[in-house]
Nucleic acid binder design. Structure first.
Length: 534
DNA sequence: GCCC
DNA sequence: CAGTACG
DNA sequence: GGGCCGTTACTG
């Protein structure tokens, strides 16, 4: 997924969005800047720039809409939620990259002015009302088919826009908004996903781990370059956990994974050419690969491992709840090891971190499949004592992928009644906590986080699986999540993973014009609720 | 650290 | 709301 | 030189 070349358009789209966000939030910084007099002048000069503007944001993500609306209001304009046909809307504001909208806006009457998001921020920066025509939303439909192909069955899901439209529109407000923006020739709903260039996307299919292809099989069989990869990954881990350089660490890890995925052994740096990120002769990681091939080790890594701060932070981040930043802060306070932390005064660590500390060693142990099964079954049994309703539970994560051991236990609970999801969770917790009268009482030993529909905590078997085992059962990380039936399919998909598979699948969905989340699949990239596919 |  | 941790 | 996964839900 990370290496899929098909991600550029999406990256660009994201870049556009974040730029818009950055610009939108900028004024606050400006006003707070040192030169208050200028800042004041700026505020007054932009005060009336948008007088008389009544804007309707269409198909703009909620967060961005809020930011821009605030900015608009500061400049004297008004943002409305619905076009209530009183003709008060003067401007329709949409993003450049929204294909559907750009298309639908062609059909809009000329008495509203169509502009992109940049217009607002540009006007603010220039302190004047800029020409709307310079900021007309750009449509990128030219290269795409006017009418979606329905010739290929594998793509039909993404191109359906007829009577059997998969789209369920929710609120009346959503309907109203869609009346404005989704004027298809026959009044049908049209979404971003209807305009995807599937032919082009098809060529990239092989690069996605979420798609059936040869790449997946290759990876299962081969185990090459593990030595080089392990060293690079170790360096990556140090950058991420000890040096708080997330992105540098990520590069090392990505390079390590790419080398592991190769189906041949690399014996010279020239063989790195097939890996995009290592293909440049000047690549630093490529040089490191050469050094490892020649000497079997990496000087930079060995030196790094000698550093006391690195040693300390690596050990401290091993505690659940302590990340790179907290580890560094603790190091500066003089804590250099888990043993030091155990001597720390109460209050040094947060409650969840203290629990993480209590079980550091135990949490690092893998959980045998059999034990995952037993503990998850306890959750299912607890859930099924709730209101006589047959509650379905799924043990997800690596267990559901068939792994023989797992790092933690992840249980997904389906609740048919949206109104009692929290009750169900509380019922399960009470059943499993110590001191109760259920046969499962005491399975949960500690809580890390108790939310409305989310639980993160600690569980352990009441007695060893093997009767002859005298050691007490190991404490395990356990998560329980309650999902409403409507959200279950995508929740299952999401929590079954793997993470890499998920990221690939989400990207694939994005490029298809969909938006895949744990709570649902949406036919449009951004406007979430109204394009929900039921 | 690498890509755009 | 920013910072943090997580999968 | 800016951006780098998206989301959830906590803490402060």
């Amino acid at each position: 997924s990370d290496d899929a070349p098909g991600c550029e358009p999406y990256r660009k789209m994201l870049a556009l969005h974040s730029r818009a966000l950055a610009m939108a939030s900028e004024p606050k910084g400006d006003v707070d800047a040192d030169d208050t007099e200028d800042a004041h002048a700026l505020v007054t000069s932009t005060n009336h720039v948008m007088d008389g503007v009544c804007a309707l944001f269409v198909n703009v993500a909620a967060k961005r809409k809020a930011t821009l609306a605030k900015l608009l209001t500061r400049m004297g304009g008004v943002a409305v939620e619905v076009d209530d046909e009183q003709g008060e809307v003067t401007h329709v504001i949409a993003s450049d990259d929204n294909i559907v909208l750009a298309k639908a806006m062609d059909d809009l009457s000329d008495d509203v002015i169509k502009v992109n998001l940049e217009w607002i921020t540009a006007c603010f920066k220039q302190s004047s009302r800029l020409s709307e025509s310079d900021y007309a939303p750009r449509a990128h439909v030219a290269a795409l088919p006017e009418i979606p192909h329905i010739d290929d069955m594998s793509q039909s899901v993404s191109t359906t826009n007829n009577a059997m439209a998969p789209v369920e529109r929710k609120s009346s407000q959503a309907k109203r908004a869609s009346a404005l923006m989704l004027k298809g020739a026959h009044g049908e709903a049209i979404w971003t996903s209807d305009f995807v260039d599937n032919e082009k996307l098809e060529k990239r299919r092989e690069f996605f781990v979420c798609q059936p292809n040869a790449y997946t099989e290759k990876k299962l069989v081969m185990e090459c370059n593990t030595k080089v990869a392990d060293i690079l990954a170790e360096l990556g881990e140090i950058y991420k956990s000890a040096l708080r350089d997330e992105y540098r660490g990520k590069q090392y890890n990505q390079a390590a994974n790419a080398l592991r995925a190769l189906n041949f052994e690399v014996t010279s740096t020239d063989q790195c050419d097939s890996i995009p990120m290592l293909s440049k002769k000047t690549s630093k990681i490529r040089k490191y690969v050469g050094e490892i091939l020649s000497f079997g080790k990496l000087k930079a890594l060995d030196e790094m491992k000698q550093r006391p701060d690195v040693k300390a932070c690596l050990e401290l981040t091993g505690v659940h709840g302590i990340g790179p930043v907290t580890a560094h802060k603790l190091f500066l306070k003089g804590y250099k090891s888990v043993a030091d932390l155990r001597r720390a005064p109460k209050g040094t660590l947060s409650e969840p971190q203290s629990i993480g500390l209590k079980y550091v060693e135990e949490f690092k142990e893998r959980i045998p499949r059999e034990e995952v099964s037993v503990l998850a079954t306890a959750v299912r049994e607890a859930a099924n004592t709730f209101m006589d309703d047959k509650v379905h539970c799924y043990c997800v994560g690596s267990f559901r992928r068939g792994r023989s051991s797992s790092g933690d236990i992840d249980v997904l609970v389906e609740c048919r009644d949206e109104s009692c999801m929290t009750d169900l969770l509380m019922h399960i917790l009470n059943d499993l906590r110590p001191g109760g009268k259920s046969p499962r009482s005491g399975i949960l030993t500690d809580d890390l986080l108790v939310g409305d529909v989310t639980y993160m905590g600690v569980a352990r078997l009441q007695r060893p699986l093997d009767d002859s085992d005298t050691k007490p059962p190991v404490h395990r990380r356990m998560d329980i999540k309650i999902y409403h039936s409507a959200q279950l399919p995508t929740a299952l998909l999401y929590f079954t993973g793997s993470m890499r598979f998920n990221r690939s699948m989400r990207l694939w969905a994005k490029l298809k014009g969909f938006n895949l989340q744990d709570k649902g699949l949406y036919a449009d990239r951004e406007q979430v609720e109204m394009s929900r596919i039921s």
